[in-house]
Amino acid sequence: MLDIAVPTFIDEIREVDVAFLAIAGQYAEDGKLQGLLEMLGVPYTGSGVLASAQAMHKPTAKKRLDGTIARPIQPWVHCTETQPTRSADAFAREWTDLVRATLKLPVVVKPASQGCSIDLHLARDDQQLHDVFTQLAPTSADGQELVVEPYIQGRHLSCGVLEIGGEPVPLPPLEVVLKGELYDHASKQHPEAHCVYHCPAPLPEPIHNQVSAAAVHAHQTLGCHGYSRSDFIADHDGQVWWLETNTLPGLTPTGNLATMATAAGIDHDTLIERILQTAADPRHYRP
């Protein structure tokens, strides 16, 4: 196991046959690590530079898929800071006004480029929204962008895609039943304490088919490779909304991708082997 944070990482990674990427977050799943491995000529698992960058940056992914994906994309506001020396209160007031002019409350606020639902917040009224923006202002002054979306109550669904024989195959959709309001960082890191998985998700056939098809479409349109996972919400009216696509979903034996694979008759060891095989496939230049 290699740590990208140690000074000797580049020397160590040159010696490997294949880099199996079991890593998440900025500088890991956003195309930067993938670009380094491309420059060093080291084969690696997962998507390439462009697909990783597009999927990680939520505004770019939304623009790329909007109008092409069968599942609609929620209205959203992209918050960027152009005056980094302003006070946190000035940040918050401007962004609160912007969001309130565009979206109805409650809303979800999250970083535009971050993994594992880090810094995901729910705001039900103007004061909560202002407080969230005030809290996130320091990271925004450092260049972190934010995305704000309507908060939709409904069924949280995920669908993994695994390439088998070069073809993207959807895994059985999984439903996450939350014990709280948000599928946030804590829920994803410690699912046993915050949620329950149902896989295959007990869905009506039309919704099951829509989620599976949308996951494959997102995988292909974003240019993903090897495997991915897309997340959705089905609201109380049965409308399915695409949320995001993860190019390096977690691979723990009890995680959602492994749970979906198990439901498809693929045990954890076989899942890892199949992902590893995609890194060894002959590939031409990938953007």
Rank of each mutant, 00 (worst) to 15 (best):
D17Y: 07
V18M: 06
V18E: 02
V18Y: 05
A19I: 10
F20D: 01
F20S: 00
F20Q: 01
L21C: 03
L21E: 01
L21I: 15
L21F: 02
A22T: 01
I23F: 07
I23L: 15
A24W: 14
G25P: 13
Y27D: 14
Y27N: 15
A28Y: 07
A28I: 07
E29P: 15
E29G: 11
G31P: 12
K32G: 01
K32L: 05
L33R: 06
Q34L: 03
Q34I: 03
L36N: 08
L37P: 06
L37K: 07
E38D: 15
E38W: 02
E38S: 02
M39D: 02
M39A: 09
L40G: 10
L40K: 14
G41A: 10
G41K: 10
V42P: 06
P43N: 09
P43W: 03
P43T: 06
P43Q: 07
P43L: 01
P43K: 07
Y44A: 00
Y44D: 00
T45I: 05
T45P: 06
G46E: 04
G46R: 06
G46I: 05
S47C: 04
S47E: 03
G48A: 04
G48C: 10
G48V: 04
V49M: 00
V49N: 00
V49T: 07
V49C: 00
L50N: 05
A51E: 09
A51C: 12
S52N: 04
A53L: 03
A53F: 06
Q54R: 14
Q54L: 15
A55R: 11
